[in-house]
C-alpha cells in the first residue's frame, strides 16, 4: 500500500487519473503545468502534459523556482483532505482546492518566483488538479501518522 506522500503514491494516483477519460471532459482537458507539492520537508514535482500527469519525482526545495506553482499545507491538512476524498469519492464542498486556498490564512497555491501568470495556472487548470486528487480515492493509501481533524 503506497504511503502518502511518495513517488509511488503519486504514480498510483497518476495511473488512475490518466486512465479515466472522464477527466478529459467537463472542464478537464489538456493542462501543461509543473506543480510542486510540499509536505513538511518532502518536496515533489508533478509534471502535467497533455491530458496526463506524466511524471512524479522528488525535487529539492530550491527547484520550486522551476514549477508554475506549488501546493503547500500543514501535513495534517493534507491528510485530512485525502481522507475526505476517500470517504466521499471526491472532495466534498469543504475540501476542494480552491476552497482550501481561500479558506486558510496561508493559502494553498504559491509561487516560488512571485510570477502571478504562472501561479494563475492553479486557476486555469483547477478542475484538472482537482480531478487528479479526486482520483486518489481509487488508491489505497497509508499515512505516516494519525491526525485529529481540525
Amino acid at each position: 500500500m503506497p504511503v502518502f506522500p511518495s513517488v509511488e503514491w503519486f504514480d498510483a494516483v497518476s495511473r488512475s487519473f490518466n486512465s479515466d477519460e472522464a477527466n478529459r471532459t467537463a472542464g478537464g482537458g489538456i493542462a501543461d503545468a509543473g506543480v510542486g507539492i510540499i509536505f513538511e520537508d518532502q518536496v515533489f514535482l508533478l509534471n502535467f502534459a497533455g491530458y496526463e500527469c506524466e511524471k512524479a519525482s522528488v525535487i529539492q526545495r530550491s527547484d520550486l523556482e522551476n514549477t508554475d506553482f506549488y501546493l503547500e499545507m500543514h501535513p495534517d491538512d493534507w491528510i485530512e483532505m485525502l481522507i475526505n476524498i476517500q470517504q466521499n469519492g471526491t472532495a466534498d464542498m469543504n475540501y476542494t482546492l480552491n476552497t482550501l486556498d481561500l479558506d486558510s490564512e496561508d493559502g494553498l497555491a504559491k509561487s516560488a518566483t512571485d510570477d502571478q501568470y504562472r501561479l494563475d495556472k492553479f486557476f486555469r487548470f483547477n478542475q484538472t488538479i482537482q480531478f487528479f486528487f479526486d482520483a486518489s480515492s481509487d488508491v489505497e493509501t497509508e499515512f505516516d501518522r494519525e491526525i485529529t481533524p481540525a
Binding site: G27, M93, T96, D103, D120, F123, R124, N126
Partner: peptide
Amino acid sequence: FRMGELMAYNEAEKYMYRLCGQDESRHVA
C-alpha cells in the same frame, strides 16, 4: 468566481464557479 466556489451552498454552485474560474483565468492570462 473563486469566492463563489468558496461560499457555494451545493455541488452545482461549486462546479459552476470553478469551471467559470478556469475560463476566466485563461482570459486573464
